[in-house]
Design a protein around this nucleic acid. Sequence first.
DNA 1: CACCCATGTCAACGGTGTGGACAACAGTCC
DNA 2: GGACTGTTGTCCACACCGTTGACATGGGTG
Lengths: 262, 262
Amino acid sequence: MAGKPPEEADVRQTGEGAGDGRTRRRAAARPERAPARRRTAGGRDRAVSLSSDLIVDRALELTEREGPSALTMRRLGEELGVDPTAVYRHFRDKDDLVLACMDRIIDNAYEALQPAIDGLDWRGVLRAVAEQSWQSCEAHPAFYSLAFYRTTGGPGERKIVELLVSTIASAGLSPEQTALHYRVFVDSMLAMCGMKAGAQSLGSQLQEKDSSAWTRIYAILPQEEYPSARAHATHLAEVTELAIFRSVTEAVIALIEAARRG
Amino acid sequence: MAGKPPEEADVRQTGEGAGDGRTRRRAAARPERAPARRRTAGGRDRAVSLSSDLIVDRALELTEREGPSALTMRRLGEELGVDPTAVYRHFRDKDDLVLACMDRIIDNAYEALQPAIDGLDWRGVLRAVAEQSWQSCEAHPAFYSLAFYRTTGGPGERKIVELLVSTIASAGLSPEQTALHYRVFVDSMLAMCGMKAGAQSLGSQLQEKDSSAWTRIYAILPQEEYPSARAHATHLAEVTELAIFRSVTEAVIALIEAARRG
DNA sequence: CACCCATGTCAACGGTGTGGACAACAGTCC
DNA sequence: GGACTGTTGTCCACACCGTTGACATGGGTG
């Protein structure tokens, strides 16, 4: 029998050492036999054979270099110098790959965060996490727009969850309140990032069209019908996405502050 | 000449009566000549010929009935009893159609809102708008997930913008502060809706997998490594999306309140 | 050595959005 | 009334997408 593994894998089990082997097509979740180089099977000789990590690397590079629309299996195969379908030996489907990339992005953000948050109080930590998320969102809009509402379940996500939950709990909230406000913080932050990422992933023409709406449309509305919109059109056009993001972050921090006091 | 209209249309000009003719492929933005029924051109005889409004109607019905994945041009053509490409006579491309649908959704929400907000103070209006958005997001996740970060520029959007900007200005904020906090409110609200819509648009299996993450993954993490996440897993699983959404709404209202006081 | 299985290759399927050429009908002008 | 014009639906076809199943190859293990 040994059919396709029904559901398992896809989320690394806890211990299991460093090897982050992902779901294989027919293979069970083996501990990534030997990551040795020059294990050439089936194909021509290549410097190093594929690995989940390598694929994720290249996928991140690719979209960073050529934008979100370059994220196709064929294009990725080309990038790897490999048949497009070879990727399916390492990831169940594209969704699986995207989630792995997203978790890697989160993990990188976490690592970059670690030295910066030392000694900060809970407010400082939350601000730092938010700021870092915004940055990695700007660097990888393709994956944020595809996965900001998803759960990777991977190691990166776990570390951030642990960091944030412990941080918010340390502010002095009850477990229930901690849980709620963790979700409020994370969801609002990710949602804002996803929104920016979506806009950023648009074709440049659509992007331009959408962002110019305030001056293109609302600045020339008839004053009788839309007095307020018209009157504020100039100011509205000047608000930056980063300012909005930071305002939301501060609003949530203030909310937690309020919950903390009683 | 009379070539394809370069950019115009796509946003209804101000006056122009009721007819909401959308961009045609090669046709200029004529005032929708005669919406009379049984104008059969090119095709067999049919009850009523296509119109932008009819297409939007059917698109909304279709996705409401069969879910987001049913929103394909071929499926929509089938629904209309028409060749799929006929839709392109009324909308430049699928994006154009989606935006039109989104604006219709917004417009419907606005109409449903009108009677309810009479006499409410600014806080009440914002809460009502948020609540209504959440509802229409639950009814039309497909379009929210596709367009929550977009600008329709259509009549529905304009009305809501006018309502919200005037509401926030009436709280006593300066024009700059009004503009900023309008964007904070709208963006955070739409972002949260988009997030929910994205999750809701997932296949039911993925949806289940993602939402069960707290009990499936975080409840069984090793306590030494992830003490806080593990300890809060149960509470985390019990937080509802609506509670999160409402918390964010209240956080933003409190932010505006704070800005109002100086 | 023989076996097995992980891994890459290849060809192909069904689906997507969309463009271009054609055709039928409505309304307009002589 | 007849010719013309422009709108709108049809048909065919393209390029691209994710994904699958059968096949080949070669390393590791018995």
